[in-house]
Design a protein around this nucleic acid. Structure first.
Lengths: 213, 213
DNA sequence: CCGGACATCGACCGATCGGCTGATGGCGGG
DNA sequence: CCCGCCATCAGCCGATCGGTCGATGTCCGG
């Protein structure tokens, strides 16, 4: 079914990783790496120009987030399938990436055979997930109501960030040019969303989910 | 001064990264990769057996921490220089690694020319640090007294862990079979050590330094 | 043997937090 | 056009926190 050569685009901010992937795929005549990009923005441009079968996409990059790049490609109706290849597997990364339109999600510590197989699968439009990611996803989907956690609003994240720095409500109010009452409202709301009952726990959950630090 | 071929050992849990490094150094006749290891324990064994000039060491690995591996090699008086090559540059990683005896500390997003230069420098025993790491280090060293942070005692870490879960002082007291006054004492102490003024900031700093999460 | 780090406890007090109730206005989707 | 989400604000109050005195006992290392 995959007799054709599969064309690839590599998007990763680490030269070492780009080289590793390039070399890896160069050793197999079934793959052809068309190009590389170091950031999301550049990745989108190249994906549109080169029209690869599969885009190998890192998520956390200085020059344009991977999730945004995926969303952009999806929005533009690009033909390329996106296979996320990252070090991290936190909820805050995986779910948005899948939602944005990623065809697969692999962790970088996957053996190369798995990687090859995943790229072939992705080229055919099949979804491929690392076992760890898959189990995360099901558990995340299984409790969509209260326990999990809706996304924080921009303002709530802003307040939470200051809380993590030890800023008091009054100081936060001054900092953001709002009243202390509003700060408390934001806090009460984000406590509910994060499923906690005080600021210390909120900071902890935020770190766990990658919202902070 | 470096006419000799420099021998290398690669220690990293990611096959992709190992391949990337191997390929990169294979393209330059001035380097010879003697072997690879996927974890700290295996890394130490191979370093002792192969006696490479330079060990490229990742820090966070499932099979044996990089810092422990470095400390082990130092303790055993291995001839090999260790060059840390990692994605992270937090205090909790860099400083212990340097203390353990690493000759250099580079981030994986370093351009390959820098990497080559760093390996040559490490082979000669010269210290090489990423600019970002270097600035971290100086600022960490410059304030050794109060601001930086001594290590938390076991009891303090225990209390802090409960704080991160949203536990109140009274509940912590019951949980640990001590009085609320004692809990407050532990907290006051660890606030001082972490350089913060409330529990939320303490949790944040703890996450940043890898004490939690 | 003494100093210092650690762990334990008590009491007091001002500052802060979190919960509650309720209100206003903007903005976007159905 | 109305509903829901977001952001804004007010006042009240009990609970909790953080700071500051001081005190006791252990254990380890110099």
């Amino acid at each position: 079914m995959t007799d054709r050569v599969i064309t690839l685009l590599i998007v990763d901010d680490h030269p070492v990783v780009r080289d590793g992937l390039r070399g890896m795929f160069a050793s197999d005549p079934g793959f052809d790496v068309l190009g590389e990009a170091a950031g999301g923005v550049e990745g989108v441009e190249l994906a549109l120009r080169l029209d690869p079968d599969v885009v190998l996409m890192d998520l956390r990059m200085p020059a344009g987030s991977g999730v945004e790049a995926i969303a952009e490609l999806t929005r533009l109706g690009a033909r390329s399938k996106v296979l996320v290849l990252t070090t991290y597997d936190t909820d805050s990364d995986t779910i948005p990436a899948i939602e944005a339109g990623a065809t697969g999600y692999l962790l970088k510590d996957a053996p190369r055979e798995d990687l090859f197989a995943a790229v072939r699968a992705a080229a055919e439009g099949r979804t491929v997930l690392s076992p760890a990611v898959a189990s995360r996803l099901v558990s995340a989907v299984r409790r969509p109501a209260v326990p999990a956690g809706e996304a924080l609003s921009a303002r709530e994240r802003e307040v939470l960030g200051l809380v993590a720095k030890g800023t008091s409500n009054r100081e936060i109010a001054r900092e953001l040019f709002i009243s202390e009452a509003t700060v408390k409202t934001h806090l009460t709301h984000l406590y509910g969303k994060l499923g906690v009952k005080d600021r210390a726990a909120a900071v902890a959950v935020a770190y766990d989910r990658g919202i902070l630090g």
